[in-house]
Simulated assay, not measured.
Amino acid sequence: MEPLFETVKVLVTGKVQGVSYRHSTVRMAHQLKLRGWVQNQGDGSVLALLQGEPDQIDRMLAWMRSGPPAARVQDVVSETLAAEKRYEGFQQL
């Protein structure tokens, strides 16, 4: 039986650009074997799409609440999506 697979959209606000947040997110996603992407938004936030098993996603969300040392995360809002597309890996856009 195939493991449970979720897709979660995550918006991170605070001081999360110019502090290696995206690069660190890619590294952590690779460690957790997640798929998807992360990108900066014009308003200074970071948007990510995570795909993987629920426990992997929970661990990633916990990490994203603090991020790398220079980041100052204000808020992390996540939303589970019904996604048809499955990403092959995890990348920075």
Rank of each mutant, 00 (worst) to 15 (best):
Q51P: 05
L49C: 05
G52K: 07
Q41H: 09
L34M: 10
A48G: 11
A29T: 03
R35E: 09
P54I: 11
L47W: 11
G44A: 07
Q39A: 11
G42F: 00
V38Q: 01
L50D: 03
D55K: 11
D55Y: 08
R27N: 10
V46C: 11
G42C: 00
G44Y: 03
D55I: 09
S45G: 14
G52T: 11
R35K: 15
V46M: 07
Q39C: 10
L49I: 09
D55W: 06
V38M: 08
M28W: 04
Q41R: 15
Q39Y: 04
M28D: 00
L49N: 01
G44P: 04
Q56P: 01
Q41K: 12
N40L: 03
Q39I: 03
A29I: 10
V38P: 00
W37M: 06
V38N: 02
W37F: 15
A48H: 06
L34E: 02
L49D: 02
E53R: 15
E53I: 06
L50Y: 11
L47Y: 03
V26G: 05
V46I: 11
L50P: 04
V46H: 01
H30R: 13
M28E: 14
T25N: 02
G52R: 02
R35G: 04
S45M: 10
H30L: 08
Q31A: 08
D43F: 05
P54Q: 14
Q41I: 07
R35L: 12
G52M: 08
G44L: 07
E53W: 00
V26Y: 01
R27C: 06
N40E: 08
K33V: 04
D55G: 08
Q56V: 01
G44C: 06
V46D: 02
G44M: 05
N40P: 09
G52N: 08
G36N: 13
V38W: 02
H30Y: 03
V38R: 01
Q51W: 13
E53A: 15
A29W: 08
L50T: 01
L50M: 08
S45P: 07
R35N: 13
W37C: 02
L49E: 10
A48Y: 00
H30T: 06
N40K: 11
Q39G: 03
M28P: 01
D55P: 04
K33W: 09
M28L: 07
D43G: 02
L50I: 06
K33Y: 09
D43T: 03
E53T: 15
R35I: 00
G42V: 00
L49H: 10
Q39W: 00
V26W: 02
S24V: 02
L49R: 05
V26H: 00
P54F: 11
Q39S: 09
T25G: 13
N40G: 12
G44N: 01
G52S: 08
Q41M: 14
L32E: 10
Q56E: 06
R35H: 13
V38T: 11
T25E: 02
S45V: 14
Q41C: 14
R27M: 12
R35C: 13
L32Q: 08
G52I: 06
L50E: 00
D55F: 07
A29L: 10
A29Y: 09
D43A: 04
G52H: 08
